[in-house]
Simulated assay, not measured.
Amino acid sequence: MGRNLYILAGTLLILAIVSFGVSYTNIAQQPGSPGDISLWRSMGLVLFVISMVVGLGAILTTLFEQAERHTEEQREEQRRARRKRG
């Protein structure tokens, strides 16, 4: 699950960078293209914020999965130790 969130965060970050790039180039002033520069910048900012939130979710998911795996390994070691004693 964490890996998928990292990929989503990266994709959103790339789209945010492209949106910022379009706002600073001459593409936004070409006829037939959405020419509102503030729209491109706002869209880039929103995509960047969403990317950071998804990245934070990916980090937290990975940390919780790692803690759960570590706890399960400790439980398994305790079971093995009990079996050796008994």
Rank of each mutant, 00 (worst) to 15 (best):
M1K: 09
G2H: 02
R3I: 09
R3V: 11
L5K: 11
L5S: 07
L5N: 02
I7P: 00
L8A: 10
L8I: 08
L8Y: 00
L8W: 03
A9W: 01
T11M: 02
L12C: 07
L12R: 00
L13A: 15
L13E: 10
L13S: 14
L13D: 08
L13P: 00
I14D: 00
L15S: 03
A16S: 15
S19L: 05
S19P: 02
G21T: 09
V22R: 05
S23A: 15
S23V: 04
S23I: 03
T25I: 06
T25Y: 04
N26C: 03
I27H: 03
I27S: 07
A28S: 12
A28G: 03
Q30S: 13
Q30R: 10
Q30M: 15
P31K: 09
P31T: 13
G32N: 13
G32E: 10
G32L: 13
S33R: 10
S33Q: 11
P34M: 14
G35T: 08
G35H: 07
D36K: 10
I37M: 09
S38L: 13
S38M: 12
S38F: 12
S42E: 11
M43D: 08
M43T: 15
G44I: 00
L45F: 09
L45I: 08
L47S: 07
L47T: 04
F48T: 02
F48Q: 03
V49W: 01
I50K: 01
I50W: 05
S51P: 03
S51V: 05
M52N: 00
M52S: 08
V53Y: 01
V53I: 15
G55E: 01
G55T: 00
L56Q: 06
G57Q: 10
G57Y: 05
A58K: 01
A58R: 01
I59F: 12
I59S: 06
I59T: 11
L60P: 01
L60Q: 11
T61I: 09
T62W: 06
L63V: 15
F64E: 12
F64P: 02
Q66H: 12
A67P: 00
E68P: 00
H70E: 15
T71Q: 13
T71A: 15
E72V: 10
E73L: 14
E73F: 07
Q74C: 10
R75S: 07
E76R: 13
E77V: 12
E77N: 10
E77Q: 15
Q78C: 04
Q78P: 01
Q78N: 12
R79T: 06
R79S: 08
R79D: 08
R80N: 11
R80K: 14
A81I: 05
K84R: 14
K84N: 08
R85G: 07
R85F: 09
